[in-house]
């Protein structure tokens, strides 16, 4: 954010600036009248366009000028979500990984809602799910957020007959719904039940044109498969995925294994050290899928697990308690 290039120093330009400033003041007062009127009328639509394009700068000489708001510098090579064949290559040099702290999860379900908003999903389509799990009869139940694990040995990618789902160099497994034939083999192959199928048609699916990128997974299509995509479009801009940034407890850490750093938006930790200290594990490790989502055990819980049952319907509460008590499905 360097405004030095806009620094005008000649006298002529000072005069120009004064004139400009006068104009600004007249425009400003006029705008104030309009603004106050619009506040009273409670119209917020038009005001969005007024203030966001320019930003005021106090120069070294003490003059106030207006300059264009700078574009956020893109943190990776390109900030445009890749489309088509390009989407099969990963963001160079990255290797995304997620760590979920089970000691913090209290079933707030904000991760699910954030993901649904970001990916234009119906309320019953959950790319991130939260289960109530109990490891053995003696242990305490805990809440278990589970999205796609983006495995290094993915059973879903192996079985896709047309290569609609693929693994990239940045660890992310994506789905290209332009190629998917909807055979649902990948849905049955995933041992973690991470994939969903779009059973119904939606109005927003009609927007499917060249805007589609496997990195955003929007707009979706009817009759194809969908799953958590680790939000690579947000990673390109240095933003955390929707789930990680929505969690009120900071339970979801996301980062780059190559950089050895994961963050939940507030604290940033070294990934290898974190897994070592907290004895992080991967779910169903023995299946050999090599998942890339690590879990930190639910010890020293912040809240008792019952807190997460509070906002649920009676039906759901009963279902969950049955599920863990019988240890059946």
């Amino acid at each position: 954010m360097n405004f030095k290039c806009n620094n005008m120093t000649t006298n002529d330009e000072n005069d120009e600036r004064r004139k400009f400033l006068k104009n600004i003041f007249t425009v400003g007062t006029g705008a104030l009248a309009v603004g106050v009127g619009s506040v009273i009328a409670q119209e917020t639509e038009s005001s969005e366009k007024v203030a966001t394009e320019k930003i005021k700068v106090l120069t070294t000489e003490g003059k106030v000028i207006e300059v264009d708001k700078p574009d956020n510098k893109c943190k990776t090579g390109s900030c445009n979500p890749a489309k088509g064949i390009e989407a099969r290559k990963g963001i160079p040099g990255r290797s995304f990984v997620m760590v979920i702290d089970l000691a913090r999860c209290k079933n707030a379900r904000k991760c699910i809602e954030g993901c649904q908003k970001g990916h234009d999903l119906l309320p019953d389509q959950e790319l991130m799910k939260v289960y109530l799990m109990k490891d053995n009869p003696e242990s305490e139940p805990y809440w278990f957020p589970k999205n796609c694990f983006h495995c290094d040995n993915p059973p879903c990618v192996k079985v896709c007959p047309v290569g609609a789902t693929f693994k990239r160099t940045d660890n992310v497994v994506l789905v290209d719904i332009d190629r998917c034939i909807g055979c649902k083999f990948c849905v049955s192959a995933c041992p973690y039940s991470a994939r969903i199928f779009n059973w119904t048609d939606k109005e927003s699916y009609a927007n499917n044109d060249s805007n589609y990128s496997p990195e955003t997974s929007v707009p979706g299509q009817h009759g194809v498969v969908s799953k958590c995509d680790f939000c690579p479009d947000r990673s390109r801009e240095g933003k955390l995925p929707y789930c990680a940034s929505s969690c009120p407890m900071g339970a979801i850490y996301f980062g780059d294994k190559n950089e050895d750093a994961v963050t939940n938006g507030e604290e940033t930790l070294r990934f290898k050290q974190l897994i070592k200290d907290r004895v992080g594990y991967r779910y169903l490790e023995e299946l050999g899928t090599e998942p890339n989502v690590y879990y930190l055990p639910a010890t020293n819980r912040m809240f008792p697990y019952e807190r997460g049952l509070n906002d649920l319907s009676e039906e759901k509460k009963e279902l969950l308690l049955n599920s863990i008590s019988k240890n059946t499905h």
């Binding site: 192996k158 079985v159 896709c160 007959p161 047309v162 290569g163 609609a164 190629r179 998917c180 034939i181 909807g182 055979c183 649902k184 083999f185 199928f197 779009n198 009817h222 009759g223 194809v224 498969v225």
Partner: peptide, 28 residues
């Protein structure tokens, strides 16, 4: 099988982009 496909009109993707590692391609 065609009835089971979500996108039967894309059946020919099986012949344009086949992946030999998939059991479905062996089956086809």
């Amino acid at each position: 099988i065609l009835l089971c496909l979500g996108r039967p009109e894309r059946l020919f993707n099986l012949f344009i982009y086949p992946r030999l590692q998939s059991p479905i391609i062996w089956d086809v």
